Amino acid sequence: MSATPYDQQIEDLLKLYRTQREEAAETRRRINETTATATAPRQAVKVTVSAQGEVTAVEFPTAAYRRMAAKEFADVLLTTIQQARAQAFEEAGAVVSAQLPPGVAVADLLQGRLDPDAILPVDPEMPDHVRDYLDHGFRAGSHG
Rank of each mutant, 00 (worst) to 15 (best):
Met1Gln: 15
Ser2Met: 14
Ala3Ile: 07
Pro5Arg: 15
Pro5Val: 12
Pro5Ser: 13
Tyr6Gln: 14
Asp7Ala: 09
Asp7Thr: 10
Ile10Arg: 13
Ile10Thr: 11
Asp12His: 09
Leu13Ala: 15
Leu13Gly: 15
Leu13Gln: 15
Leu14Gln: 08
Leu14Met: 03
Lys15Asp: 11
Leu16Cys: 05
Thr19Arg: 04
Arg21Trp: 06
Glu22Thr: 11
Glu22Gln: 10
Glu23Ser: 08
Ala24His: 02
Ala25Arg: 06
Thr27Glu: 12
Arg28Gln: 09
Arg28Ser: 08
Asn32Thr: 11
Asn32Gln: 11
Glu33Tyr: 02
Thr34Arg: 14
Thr34Asn: 15
Ala36Cys: 00
Thr37Trp: 09
Ala38Pro: 00
Thr39Val: 07
Thr39Pro: 06
Thr39Met: 03
Pro41Thr: 06
Gln43Met: 08
Lys46Arg: 08
Val47Arg: 05
Thr48Met: 05
Val49Gln: 03
Ser50Pro: 01
Ser50Tyr: 02
Gln52Met: 05
Gly53Ala: 00
Glu54Ile: 00
Glu54Phe: 02
Glu54Asp: 05
Val55Gly: 08
Thr56Asp: 08
Val58Asp: 08
Val58Ile: 10
Glu59Tyr: 05
Phe60Glu: 13
Thr62Glu: 01
Ala64Ser: 11
Arg66Asp: 06
Arg67Asn: 12
Met68Thr: 01
Ala69Glu: 12
Ala69Val: 10
Ala70Ser: 05
Ala70Glu: 09
Glu72Met: 10
Phe73Lys: 13
Phe73Asp: 11
Phe73Gly: 11
Asp75His: 12
Val76Asn: 13
Leu77Cys: 10
Leu77Ile: 10
Leu77Val: 07
Leu77Glu: 10
Leu78Trp: 06
Leu78Phe: 03
Thr79Lys: 15
Thr80Ala: 12
Ile81Leu: 10
Gln83Ala: 07
Ala88Leu: 06
Phe89Asn: 07
Phe89Glu: 09
Glu90Ile: 02
Glu90Tyr: 07
Ala92His: 00
Ala92Leu: 00
Gly93Pro: 01
Gly93Ile: 00
Ala94Ile: 01
Ala98Thr: 13
Gln99His: 06
Leu100Ile: 00
Leu100Asn: 04
Pro101Ala: 13
Pro102Asn: 13
Pro102Val: 08
Gly103Pro: 04
Gly103Val: 03
Ala105Glu: 14
Ala105Phe: 06
Ala105Trp: 07
Ala105Leu: 08
Ala105Ser: 08
Ala107Ile: 00
Asp108Gln: 11
Leu109Thr: 02
Leu110Pro: 01
Leu110Asn: 00
Gly112Ser: 01
Arg113Gly: 05
Asp115Tyr: 06
Asp115Gly: 07
Pro116Asn: 04
Pro116Thr: 02
Pro116Met: 01
Asp117Ser: 08
Ala118Ile: 02
Ala118Tyr: 03
Ile119Thr: 10
Leu120Cys: 03
Leu120His: 07
Leu120Gln: 04
Val122Tyr: 09
Asp123Gly: 05
Asp132Phe: 14
Tyr133Ile: 12
Leu134Ala: 14
Leu134Arg: 15
Asp135Lys: 15
His136Asn: 14
His136Cys: 09
Phe138Thr: 10
Phe138Ile: 05
Arg139Phe: 02
Ala140Trp: 12
Gly141His: 13
His143Trp: 10
His143Ser: 11
Gly144Gln: 04
